[in-house]
Simulated scan of single mutants.
Amino acid sequence: MPAAQEGLARFGDAENCLKHLERSRRELVRFVESLTDEQLFHRPGAEVWSVAEVLEHVSLVEESAGKIIRRLRKVALGEAEPFPPSSPGQTRPDGRPLAPPLTEPKGGLSRAALLERLQAVRERVLAEVAESGERLSHPPTYAHPFFGDLTALGWLQTLVYHERHHLRQIQERLGAL
Rank of each mutant, 00 (worst) to 15 (best):
A3K: 10
A3E: 14
A4Q: 15
E6C: 00
G7R: 14
G7V: 02
L8Q: 10
F11S: 01
F11D: 02
F11H: 08
G12Q: 02
G12E: 04
G12N: 07
A14C: 04
E15Q: 14
N16R: 15
C17A: 06
C17S: 07
K19W: 04
H20P: 00
E22H: 14
R23Q: 12
S24T: 10
S24R: 01
R25S: 11
R26T: 12
E27V: 01
V29K: 05
V29T: 14
R30H: 12
E33W: 07
S34M: 11
S34R: 13
S34L: 08
T36S: 15
D37P: 10
D37S: 14
D37H: 10
E38T: 14
L40C: 09
L40S: 04
P44E: 08
P44V: 02
G45P: 06
A46G: 11
A46L: 14
V51F: 08
V51T: 12
E53N: 02
E53R: 11
E53A: 05
V54E: 01
V54S: 03
L55A: 13
L55G: 12
L55K: 07
E56W: 02
H57D: 06
S59L: 02
E63T: 09
E63H: 11
S64L: 11
A65L: 01
I69K: 03
R70Q: 12
R71I: 06
R73Y: 05
R73N: 06
R73M: 09
K74M: 11
K74P: 00
K74D: 15
E79P: 02
E81M: 05
P82H: 08
F83C: 04
F83I: 04
F83D: 06
P84H: 07
P84Q: 13
P84A: 12
P85H: 11
S86H: 08
S87C: 00
G89P: 11
Q90P: 00
R92C: 01
R92P: 00
P93E: 14
P93L: 05
P93H: 08
P93F: 09
D94I: 01
G95F: 09
G95W: 02
R96Y: 09
R96H: 13
P97H: 05
P97C: 03
P97K: 09
L98A: 04
L98M: 15
L98P: 01
A99W: 03
P100K: 12
P101H: 08
P101S: 08
P101M: 06
L102F: 11
L102M: 10
L102V: 08
T103H: 14
T103Y: 06
E104A: 10
E104R: 15
E104F: 00
P105R: 07
K106A: 15
G108R: 08
G108E: 05
L109E: 10
L109S: 04
S110K: 05
R111V: 05
A112Q: 15
A112G: 06
A113L: 13
A113T: 10
L114F: 02
L115S: 07
R117H: 03
Q119F: 08
A120I: 00
A120Y: 00
V121A: 06
R122N: 09
E123V: 04
E123P: 00
R124Q: 15
V125Y: 01
V129H: 03
A130G: 04
A130P: 00
E131D: 11
E131Q: 13
S132I: 02
E134Q: 13
R135W: 12
R135G: 09
S137A: 15
P139R: 05
Y142S: 13
A143P: 01
A143T: 12
A143K: 07
P145I: 07
F146G: 06
